[in-house]
Design a protein around this nucleic acid. Structure first.
Length: 545
RNA sequence: GGCCUGUUGGUGAAGGGGUUUAACACACCGCCCUCUCAAGGCGGCAUUCACGGGUUCAAAUCCCGUACAGGCUACCA
């Protein structure tokens, strides 16, 4: 039996690797264009880290005039979830991450498919066969127990752990042994026959981390599992070669397997793509840093931000901010531009580990919302309420114009109000504007706490108040009434002689503000009063008790 | 244990031999403006870049060691 027949016996394939090499031609790219890919597993949720990676894939491909495609890595059949693929596509789309090629909701786009790994079984096997024929791979019949046993001895002897060299017993099997075992129906996997020597060091340059040196791989890593599907490492080498990926952008946790990937690319005779290992998103957990996890950190799932009412755009801006530290400075100088106009670079991406900063996201969100028009805020609040707050939704529907007017207070101007940090905060900011939710409240920290005094102040003022007053008149009337009732109408006068007065104009207006809104912190009182109207204010006066 | 990576203020971080009396942002604290708050303006907030040694006229920046942190060490990705 020659090696070709031997390989055929080990792995049945429809085509050989030459067929696939021919089927997928080299890409025609313009100078400097890069090809990136996002390769998530359809496990039923999208990790914040995947979003970050997808953001970088998209942005780096776009700005170079290249291609960014979506590949689905579902070789772990135990973890794949129904509809997981659509979920990934939908989620990513919301964050402005779209793909030029690969898996879409209506089938696949592009010349390098299939883009779903579970549908590429024949391709992986064809390349594994190539390795077997060239004596660079071999079948292994060891089971879990055998490997555990090896590991135990290795640990005791303080030797390198793993399947390699003299420990790799199946490596020594000759063709006859193998054929006999197969005829006996024994299960097997295919392993790489590594010729690496860990005493040799490979010089390598990562696009982000820069120069580094790692020992050569000498482990006979599995490339085809017993279920016939490839391991991540093997699929990575075959796919990224065939699909023409120029830049493999992935999480830092993969850095440790780089030696294996280099070994694989060399043995397969493929050119090594460029690598960019992006730093892991970390969280400060009681003083120690750790990788964010979906179990412990709710925000690891990007749906969390939707529930919080944080706009997708804000999260994208946060991604941009942590991707290149100089982005934030640029953005502040180019407020009218899109993040897509910024030129991101690998060299400015963080090394090591990026701290997840929720305060920063809130701040970005607050600034972003402040740039929206009143109607946009209304629409977004509406969408949010539709899912999470039926009480607010009802009010927004019943009083649409009124609500838009509320959102418009101090909004559409050069320096807009920045009170809404996220849409889950909307009700907390404006509830008192709706009679349905309004509850009167008087606070003991107020300068004036006597109920009769308060009622008298509000009543006297409301008698003079006219909804049609312009702002200046409005304020002059307030000063006038304040003066009549023994308050200082000018702050300066009050500061000079505080004992002469019952309080300042500020104290006076606080009485009105609290009596009308039951809050001490509100937007512009003039606008609020115009929206409430005299009748409703008189009603609120009656409610004081 | 082994291998890889990192360590700059309250926080995220910029800076990779002299232009750093260490950028910027967030947070915090003052003051100003002001009908309140928010916003805005002004100012404060690291005598110092984990520690020890070395190279150099000169180090946060280069080299070595130590400590600490993280990642990987699956027929998971």
């Amino acid at each position: 039996m020659d090696r070709k027949e031997y390989a055929d016996l080990l792995l049945k394939t429809e085509h050989d690797y030459e067929y696939y090499e021919k089927k997928y031609p080299k890409r025609n790219l313009k100078e400097g264009a890069i090809v990136t890919r996002l390769a998530p597993s359809p496990t039923g949720f999208v990790h914040l880290g995947s979003l970050d990676c997808g953001f970088i894939d998209r942005v780096m491909a776009s700005q170079s005039g290249g291609v960014c495609y979506l590949r689905i890595e579902d070789t772990d059949t135990k973890r794949t979830v129904d509809n997981g693929i659509n979920m990934i596509i939908d989620s990513l789309n919301k964050f402005d991450i779209t793909f030029d090629e690969g898996v879409t909701k209506d089938g696949e786009v592009g010349d390098y498919g299939p883009y779903i790994q579970s549908e590429r079984g024949d391709i992986y096997k064809a390349f594994a066969k190539k390795l077997i024929i060239e004596d660079k791979a071999y079948p292994c019949f060891c089971n879990k127990e055998d490997e555990e046993h090896i590991k135990e001895i290795q640990t005791k002897n303080k030797e390198q752990i793993g399947y390699y060299g003299r420990w790799a017993t199946c490596r020594k099997l000759n063709m006859e042994d193998v054929i006999e075992k197969i005829n006996n129906g024994e299960k097997y996997i295919i392993r790489l026959k590594s010729r690496g020597n860990p005493n040799h060091r490979i010089k390598f340059k990562d696009e982000i981390i820069g120069k580094m040196e790692i020992p050569e791989n000498n482990l006979d890593i599995p490339i085809i599992k017993s279920d016939g599907l490839p391991t991540y490492h093997f699929a990575h080498a075959v796919d990224d070669h065939l699909m023409g990926t120029t830049h493999v952008i992935r999480g830092e946790e993969w850095l440790a397997s780089l030696d294996k990937h280099i070994d694989l690319f060399n043995n397969l005779g493929f050119d090594l793509p460029k690598y960019a290992h992006i730093s892991t998103l970390m969280i400060d957990d009681n003083g120690t840093r750790r990788k964010i996890s979906k179990r412990k950190d709710p925000w690891a799932d990007i749906n969390y931000f939707h529930k919080e009412g944080i706009p997708n755009e804000a999260l994208v801006l946060y991604m941009a901010t942590i991707t290149n530290s100089n982005f934030e400075i640029w953005m502040n100088q180019n407020k009218d531009k899109s993040y897509k106009d910024f030129e991101f670079s690998f060299s400015k991406m963080p090394k090591g580990g990026t701290m997840y900063d929720h305060d920063k996201i809130i701040n970005i969100s607050k600034n972003f919302i402040s740039t929206l028009t009143a109607l946009e805020v209304y629409n977004r609040a509406f969408e949010y309420a539709k899912e999470y707050d039926s009480e607010l939704l009802e009010l927004l529907i019943r009083y649409k114009d009124y609500s838009v007017a509320i959102f418009n207070i101090e909004r559409e101007q050069k320096k807009p109000r920045k009170d809404i940090a996220a849409f889950n905060d909307v009700k907390n900011q404006i509830w008192y504007m709706y009679d349905e939710l309004y509850r009167p409240e008087i606070y003991d920290w107020q300068k004036i706490t006597d109920l009769d005094d308060i009622k008298n102040i509000v009543k006297t003022y409301l008698e003079k108040y006219d909804v049609n007053d312009d702002k200046e008149t409005w304020f002059n009337k307030m000063k006038e009434v304040a003066g009549d009732l023994g308050f200082a109408s000018e702050m300066k006068e009050y500061k000079e002689n505080p004992d002469k007065y019952k309080g300042s104009i500020a104290d006076f207006s606080t009485v009105i503000r609290v009596a009308m809104t039951s809050k001490s912190m509100t937007p512009d009182l003039y606008d609020i009063m115009r929206l409430l109207g005299k009748d409703r204010m008189l009603m609120r006066l009656e409610m004081i008790k």
